[in-house]
Design a protein around this nucleic acid. Structure first.
Length: 291
DNA sequence: CCGATTACCTGCACGC
DNA sequence: TGCGTGCAGGTAATCG
């Protein structure tokens, strides 16, 4: 599911019910997601307060009152839903969130009685619990800059791309280069920038001798796509939901993603959206206006 | 180091 | 109806 915009929407939704709250009760229904859940997971959360919810790339970070951090990654199908009535959730009498209850792996009950359920059919998501100091000093250190932050700019992109032989799309999916882009938003950003997913990443570095000319186009394209997607509540293909169960709206605003065969949305372009493969994953692009 | 491929896991859409 | 195939927002291990 979830790329940066979806994770950000989830963060905002969880913040409303979790910030400042106690983990009163944590129920764990299986031992592992993608990785084994932390040892004594529930007992290390219960009684701790959530000091704040942050996002780094596609990671959610819940800072706890005991200076540990709950690190959460939603994988492809991880989903949090919030219910006000904890008892009904634990009883299993609350349903109808549009997800299969057999994949409800964790339930977090807060001090004020809200229940937050983590559901993840494919279990590509994971959760870690580690001291605050460790996440910044080594766990997340390999991640690239936040695309909506100040340190992400054309000069940075161009310098990272300079010696890369891989194609532009695969390059942008690399979380060490930029944190938070995934398959949808790379396709959309490349379309906005008018750049082909198949050109070599290194070609960002210069154009006609001018440094970073293409990178200069790409940066605002990436930023605007992410901002628009956040404003629309993220993109729902199938699994993704906001914390209140609502679908996102950005899938209705896709220019190329999942629109193979449709006319290019760019004003004045007569191209047809095509599907290609980069790094083994589907890419959607217009061969006419993306060069 | 780099780049390409495969694995991980379940659900769903599709063709037969 | 059922069965096989391929594909799906993710990362990470492995192999050249």
């Amino acid at each position: 599911m979830p790329e940066l915009p979806e994770v950000e929407i989830v963060r905002r939704g969880l913040e409303l019910v979790l910030a400042g709250q106690l983990f009163a009760r944590v129920t764990q229904r299986r031992a592992d997601l993608r990785y084994p859940l932390p040892e004594r997971f529930a007992e290390r959360l219960e009684g701790r307060r959530v000091a704040g919810l942050e996002r780094r790339g596609k990671y959610l970070l819940a800072r706890l009152s005991d200076r540990n951090v709950l690190v959460i990654h939603l994988g492809m199908t991880g989903r949090f839903t919030v219910n006000e009535g904890a008892k009904e959730v634990l009883d299993g009498t609350v349903r109808d969130r549009g997800s299969n209850p057999k994949h409800d792996h964790l339930v977090f009950v807060t001090g004020s009685g809200a229940a937050i359920t983590y559901n993840d059919p494919r279990r590509f998501g994971f959760m870690l619990l580690m001291p605050e100091a460790e996440i910044h000093s080594h766990y997340l250190t390999g991640l690239g800059p936040e695309p909506l932050g100040d340190s992400f700019d054309a000069a940075y992109l161009a310098s990272r791309a300079r010696d890369r032989a891989t194609d532009l799309k695969t390059f942008l999916l690399d979380q060490r280069v930029i944190a938070g882009l995934g398959n949808i938003y790379v396709s959309e950003a490349l379309h906005r920038a008018g750049l082909s997913p198949n050109r070599r990443a290194a070609s960002l570095a210069r154009l006609n001798g001018k440094p970073a000319e293409r990178a200069r186009r790409l940066v605002p394209a990436i930023r605007s796509v992410l901002e628009d997607a956040i404003a629309a509540g993220g993109s729902t293909l199938r699994d993704y939901r906001q914390a209140d169960g609502a679908k996102g709206g950005f899938q209705n605003l896709f220019s190329v993603y999942a629109r193979e065969g449709e006319p290019c949305a760019r004003q004045g372009c007569r191209g047809i959206v095509r599907r290609g493969i980069n790094g083994g994953r589907s890419t959607f692009f217009c061969g006419a206006c993306q060069r």
